[in-house]
């Protein structure tokens, strides 16, 4: 059971790595959000895998559902932001967001 947990955690690490790559390398704002979604998938997988390994699946599922609900709220806000930005710049290109110098 523990080894299955470690196998799952390995894939969690892969998903988070892919998501971070997407966030760092991509230029399209919608793509960045897809990166965030991939990271979120990795984390939900981690929660369920932990619940399965510790025989506490019900608690894990309760948490996963909360995470998904919160995720929907974040994604909705982010997409609303992207649409509003698009009205200003007529583009989805993040490199055109140069008003601020970070």
């Amino acid at each position: 059971m523990n080894n299955l947990w470690i196998l799952n955690m390995g894939f969690v690490a892969l998903l988070i790595g892919i998501g971070l790559y997407c966030l760092l390398a991509m230029k399209n704002t919608v793509k960045l959000l897809i990166g965030v979604e991939i990271i979120a998938k990795g984390v939900t997988l981690a929660l369920v895998a932990s619940g399965y390994a510790r025989d506490n699946l019900m608690l894990a599922q309760a948490m996963v559902i909360t995470v998904i609900v919160i995720d929907v709220a974040v994604i909705a806000t982010a997409l609303a932001l992207i649409i509003s930005i698009n009205r200003h710049t007529k583009s989805l290109d993040v490199s055109k967001l140069t008003q601020l110098k970070g």
Binding site: T44, A49, Y52, Q61, I68
Partner: peptide, 15 residues
Amino acid sequence: HLGAVYAGVFELSVV
């Protein structure tokens, strides 16, 4: 597959 049916249904319908 891990037996987390509720989480699976939620993932399918919502995500």
